[in-house]
Design a binder for these strands. Structure first.
Lengths: 195, 195
DNA sequence: AATATAATAGCACGACCGTTCGGTTTGGAT
DNA sequence: ATCCAAACCGAACGGTCGTGCTATTATATT
């Protein structure tokens, strides 16, 4: 019971890193086994199919995101501070913590045209992530820090778009001012609706 | 001379569509040959390597983007009208013209961690695309429609992020209001700096 | 119409893919 | 110390991948 759990965790951690670097699609069982240092079949027996592995990697990534981005922001008070903390945590996550690109983004673009369990799962995970943003905006509205007329769905969309934009500017274009642009945008997004 | 050119164009068109649906990475020569209706080796001889094929597909996509998004907007007058036309053309391109997702976006996330000719090429193409946006903002500044204090680089970033955000909301999350959110954002981005 | 050249097909190659199976090693409970 | 189940390995399977090679067919030029 214990041993199996430990190695499975090790596998998922390595798989998470490989996915960040090369995408969920290119994550091959043979290569993963080599990275972990065990046999292909030994690794495979932990997951009964590649699809199940992919699903678990996405869950691992989601937990990681919650742990590194969402949870630390909860120590901040309810309102705009918390939203800004989540934005800054995201920059750190995307820019320094991850060994490669955002595992969700690659999964999204790789699977949004392939119907199946993986696609459905990513959709759910990204949906809850967007809802988390929308909820934090709602809280800021309850605290009278954001105009009650503002749409939390719209704001969540704007914050989300900014995150993806930063990621591409930072990773592909290697824009040195990507972080500043990101901060400028989320601040002006919030200013616009601030009471 | 003529025949070769025609079939090569046919191949690239099909490859462009397959890339839109499944990504540049998953574009396999065998599958592409089957779609076009010719033999694997016959198709392969047109491109001396898979990498060259990928580069040409990206060029094809860039031409297509220019043709469908940038060029039609040039009929509009210099200034904000033209910027808004490009935004609307992009929605049409991304939402209705393409058979799948944005071929650039998939290429970006698939290759931003794989050094090589493909990565370098995408970087150049996306760079010029962003510069096109920045340039159209510059023009609007020359026409005194946008404050001269506004940073065209910053605005290009904001417009670009919005485009990617829309794409994900529309394709993965299947948000029915994605287009409205997109329009709201680019309008508020432009309003903010309008003279 | 003859000829040179481009375009395409067929076949084979080594490598890797996900998956299965039979056997071996290992760890924890009795 | 014994025993059983869990963990792991090695080898092999049918497929697909990109890429050569040789031969054949179609096209363009003279």
């Amino acid at each position: 019971m214990s041993k199996g759990f430990t190695t499975k965790e090790t596998i998922l951690k390595t798989a998470f890193e490989l996915t960040s670097k090369f995408g969920l699609e290119s994550l091959s069982i043979g290569e993963l086994a080599k990275s972990v240092g065990m046999s292909k079949s030994g690794l495979f027996s932990h997951f009964k199919s590649k699809e199940k592995l992919q699903l678990m990697v996405m869950d691992y990534a989601a937990e990681n995101f919650t742990l590194k981005v969402v949870k630390p922001a909860l120590t901040k008070g309810r309102g705009i501070d918390r939203i800004e903390a989540m934005m800054e945590n995201w920059v750190k996550w995307s820019g320094t913590y991850l060994p490669g690109g955002c595992p969700f983004l690659s999964a999204i673009v790789e699977f949004d045209d392939r119907p199946g369990a993986v696609r459905d799962h990513i959709k759910v995970l990204q949906g809850t992530m967007v809802e988390t943003f929308a909820r934090s905006v709602e809280i800021a509205k309850e605290e009278s820090q954001i105009k009650s007329s503002a749409s939390s769905e719209q704001l969540a969309y704007e914050l989300y778009s900014n995150m993806i934009g930063f990621h591409i500017y930072n990773r592909l274009l290697k824009d040195k001012n990507a972080k500043v642009k990101f901060q400028n945008l989320y601040k002006s997004i919030l200013e616009k609706v601030q009471v």
